[in-house]
């Protein structure tokens, strides 16, 4: 099965059609995606800012890490599931969108980041209670950059040529709606 035919098959599934052409499902899934970004992002920012020493300094890092971790996981799962649903709705256009591929590359880097810093930073949060190592601060700074990059590249997808080019004469307000195609 070639990639184009696979993407076309995805677009022909009932789920894909229902999200793409059903009217409300697309913005609702998009809204949940955004809310989960706020939830997951808030937890991630709080954790990274603690590592950088910019908030909750009176708390040991392990406290911060353990208390945010379950909710970070919940937020992450919701972001990924809603993101997959949004992608399932329009795989052909996403395939042609450079921002989408930038976002996927950054997503892969998030995985690399987790693997690289697992041993010395995130795997043993108690070891950082005595003092935050510079390696841990680097991990936090990179995590913030990756996260911001994911938000920016995700937002840019809606503005890529494969979606709808912005023409100055028409309102931007409706141009990321799939139904306005």
């Amino acid at each position: 099965m070639t990639i184009p035919s696979m993407l076309e098959w995805i677009e022909s599934t009932n789920l894909s059609i229902a999200i793409r052409e059903g009217g409300l499902p697309y913005p609702i899934i998009g809204g949940v995606h955004l809310l989960a970004i706020a939830l997951f992002g808030g937890m991630l920012l709080a954790t990274d800012l603690r590592l950088l020493g910019w908030t909750m300094r009176s708390r040991p890092f392990s406290d911060v890490w353990h208390q945010f971790r379950p909710w970070k996981r919940v937020g992450f799962v919701i972001v990924v599931v809603t993101g997959l649903l949004l992608a399932w709705a329009e795989p052909v256009r996403l395939y042609d969108s450079p921002s989408f591929w930038v976002k996927m590359a950054l997503f892969a880097l998030v995985g690399v980041h987790a693997l690289v810093f697992r041993a010395k930073v995130y795997g043993h949060p108690e070891q950082l209670d005595a003092g935050i190592s510079s390696r841990a601060k680097l991990a936090a700074a990179l995590s913030l950059i990756l996260w911001a990059g994911l938000v920016v590249s995700g937002r840019l997808i809606a503005f890529d040529a494969s979606f709808e080019p912005v023409s100055p004469s028409e309102s931007r307000l409706t141009h990321h709606s799939p139904s306005s195609q």
Partner: peptide, 11 residues
């Protein structure tokens, strides 16, 4: 901005 504000309020 809203991830920072709403995220921390949600916490």
């Amino acid at each position: 901005g809203f991830a920072l504000s709403i995220g921390t309020i949600a916490i």
